[in-house]
């Protein structure tokens, strides 16, 4: 290495706050810069790629159906499988149904839980803070980008399923076991409403993962912790002995989107689920901001 620093000009004037020229706190870590940071990561590419792949895998597995009248068991799952091949909308619904309870939770936890913790574990977090990116801004941008990727994953899954399903099974009304069939146009709206509700419910996971992400340097801990707590909540929700307490579990209304398939639309639980999810997400994010803007970054 050989520097020729003599030729370098000294940076120009400084602001009233003493900042270097060109530095504005609100211009640090632009959304796009963070978006590109995350986009370059293999885990982002893999997660999003899998969202595209999953509907195709399901589609291919349905091709192995020999047409035998084999029983898929009983219950709503069986009927959803039976209906899945009746059209693009139903195929999308099926894809959402199978991924809603676990896969999407993991993906959202990955995007939101990994974002700060991984920077901490690489040691790059302290350099971002020394730029300085204001801490609240760092969190806000990271959260927004993580939520954008989560939404992108959801849309990719639904979009691919809708496209592949419609190409394979055609554009037909949305059928379900809970109500009469819904015309395709309205069915698409219902599907979008289901996606919207799922997105709101997953905010809890996003909040929890994000809170863990700012409290630990281990990305795996944040992601795994959020998923683990989500599963714990699901298990507790199965225990009817808990009675009214169950309504306070973040997963209690996770399946309320099924109500959006009935006619007329049952929104009561959806509304309660939204309230619950928004409360939890606000609490978790609030704690995350409170914690991160005060903590000593030692990693």
């Amino acid at each position: 290495m050989s520097g020729s620093l003599q030729s370098a000009e000294r940076p120009g004037g400084t602001s009233a706050a003493g900042a270097a020229s060109g530095y504005r706190p609100s211009a640090t870590l632009p959304f796009l810069a963070e978006f590109r940071r995350q986009a370059s990561r293999r885990r982002t590419q893999l997660a999003l790629g899998f969202m595209v792949l999953l509907p195709l895998i399901i589609l291919i597995s349905f091709q192995f159906d020999t047409g035998d009248d084999d029983d898929n068991g009983r219950g709503e799952f069986a009927s959803l499988i039976d209906l899945a091949t009746s059209g693009g909308l139903n195929f999308t619904l099926f894809s959402i149904f199978v991924s809603a309870s676990f896969l999407l939770v993991v993906v959202v936890a990955l995007f939101c839980g990994d974002t700060v913790a991984s920077e901490a574990s690489w040691g790059s977090l302290r350099y971002l803070l020394a730029i300085p990116v204001p801490r609240a801004r760092l969190l806000a941008v990271k959260l927004l980008v993580a939520l954008t990727y989560s939404a992108l994953a959801l849309l990719l899954l639904a979009g691919t399923a809708l496209l592949a399903g419609t190409l394979r099974y055609g554009w037909s009304p949305l059928r379900s076991t809970v109500a009469a069939q819904i015309p395709a146009g309205e069915g698409l709206l219902r599907l979008l409403a289901v996606l919207g509700y799922l997105a709101v419910v997953l905010l809890v996971v996003a909040g929890l993962a994000f809170l863990l992400s700012v409290t630990t340097d281990a990305a795996l801990g944040a992601v795994g912790g959020a998923v683990l707590l989500w599963i714990l909540s699901s298990i507790l929700d199965q225990i009817t002995a808990l009675g009214a307490l169950r309504a306070f579990l973040p997963t209690h209304y996770a399946n309320a989107w099924l109500g959006l398939l009935s006619t007329p639309v049952q929104t009561d639980d959806v509304v309660r689920g939204c309230i619950s999810a928004i409360c939890y997400a606000t609490l978790f994010w609030g704690l995350a901001f409170w914690r991160f803007t005060r903590k000593d970054v030692t990693s």
Binding site: A17, P25, R41, R42, W122, G123, S124, L129, P132
Partner: peptide, 21 residues
């Protein structure tokens, strides 16, 4: 923490921190 004047400081503290990928 977060003072704009930090922008006039370049630092290497506690080893490098890079995005490995």
């Amino acid at each position: 923490p977060g003072s704009p004047v930090l922008s006039r400081i370049g630092a290497l503290v506690e080893g490098p921190g890079f995005l490995p990928h």
